[in-house]
């Protein structure tokens, strides 16, 4: 399954789930990355890490490794 770390700049996707086993999963859910939400990969720092996503009208930066626990499907 695809995860958010594999998105290309500008790409939009819908969250299916957040992997519970990742240590940051709870904070990621809390900050708004919940199933059903649409995210867009805005821009990445060097080596695309951390990555900035738009989520629920905000921009949130998370590490690539943390983005990999957000499971996604392409929009439509």
């Amino acid at each position: 399954m695809k995860n958010a770390a594999q998105l290309k700049p500008g790409e939009i996707a819908v969250i299916i789930d957040v992997d519970n086993d990742h240590p940051s999963s709870h904070r990621i859910l809390e900050i708004g990355f919940t199933p059903g939400q649409e995210i867009q990969f805005i821009s990445g720092a060097l080596f695309n890490d951390p990555m900035a996503f738009s989520i629920r009208g905000s921009i949130v930066a998370i590490r690539k490794n943390e983005a990999s626990c957000i499971l996604i499907k392409p929009k439509h």
């Binding site: 649409e38 821009s43 720092a45 989520i55 009208g57």
Partner: peptide, 26 residues
């Protein structure tokens, strides 16, 4: 739909194109 409402601030997105750019950002 949710798409428009859940867009971040447009000015911010535009500025971030430069300020978070791989080279220009740095």
């Amino acid at each position: 739909g949710n798409n428009v409402r859940n867009r971040p601030d447009e000015n911010t997105l535009r500025l971030d194109k430069i300020l978070l750019h791989k080279f220009w950002g740095l």
